[in-house]
Amino acid sequence: MDNIGVYAARVAPKFDGLAPGHRACIGCGEALAVRIAMKAMGPNIIIANATGCMEVISSQLPATGWDVPWIHTLFENNSAVASGIESALKVLERKGKVPARGTKVVAMGGDGATSDIGFQALSGALERGHDFLYLMFDNEAYMNTGIQRSSATPWGASTTTSPAGKKSIGQKTQKKNMAAIVAAHEIPYVATACPSYPFDMMEKVKKGLAVNGPAFINVFSVCPTGWRSAVDLSVRLGRLAVQTGVFPLYEVVNGKYKITVEPSPMRPVQDYLKLQGRFRHLSENDVKEIQERTIHEYNMLKARTTC
């Protein structure tokens, strides 16, 4: 399967829920991720989209890029909107007011919408056990408003509100571990994914959609505009994030952890960091610190898979 890339396009489902012609930046990892997710999900879904890049690039009046029922209302409430849609479908089907078509509900939002402003609504929807899939497109900052830091921004990254300077390393905090936090809700399915591994991602999206109850996938979405990286490197950066252990690909099925793509041998984090302007200011020592932490966290994750 060394040449899977050659055949991939033929193997993937033809369905494209997000039409061509959207307004995303060149090399947008999120647009790629959404396309791959749509292929896995098919047309029998209703999407509740949070405010953010994806909403803005796909729905500018009078046009729309969506071939499935799609609703956007506000920034922080897509989980609650999805709760309402799911409940409505349930009762309307039960009362015979709409035919039972097995339609699934999907909420999508960026890392800001999910891990910051919409965190409470997400936790509420997970705790209530709504049957929906949440896709968090994680480009590690508020890209739509101009690259401001979020709780998903990694340590040391320079953003417009965590700029690197004489007295600052850039982002001073570690990336919030959303998958672990979501897994603590004891929902049936949690995963991390990256469009650079399209088949791994499609498999996870299908699984997430199939379970009865909430599912959550943290989708690593490379952002050349915000990361100050070359536009033709998005897929490679996604692979490097996985191969360096910076963003491990795993799933948590009914509480059981499993790594789905083993980064072995693990590459040095510098291979990933050096291609991005947001890390340009880091010293050798800083990179060493990131390296140590990455290995430590990977080992912690590995330990979870064996218990």
């Binding site: 209703i46 509740a48 609703i71 209302t73 506000l74 922080e76 409430n77 989980s79 609650a80 909107v81 999805a82 709760s83 309402g84 849609i85 799911e86 409940s87 409505a88 479908l89 349930k90 009762v91 309307l92 039960r94 009362k95 007011k97 709409v98 409470q120 609504a121 936790s123 509420g124 929807a125 705790e127 209530r128």
Partner: peptide, 28 residues
């Protein structure tokens, strides 16, 4: 009454869930 009662975690989510429900065609 045959209805879905969503015990949301805030009023912001209460009205947001109402948006989703009403948009799906349910009397809310």
């Amino acid at each position: 009454l045959d209805a879905e009662y969503i015990p949301v975690e805030s009023e912001h989510s209460a009205m947001s869930a109402c948006l989703g429900s009403s948009a799906t065609g349910a009397r809310t």
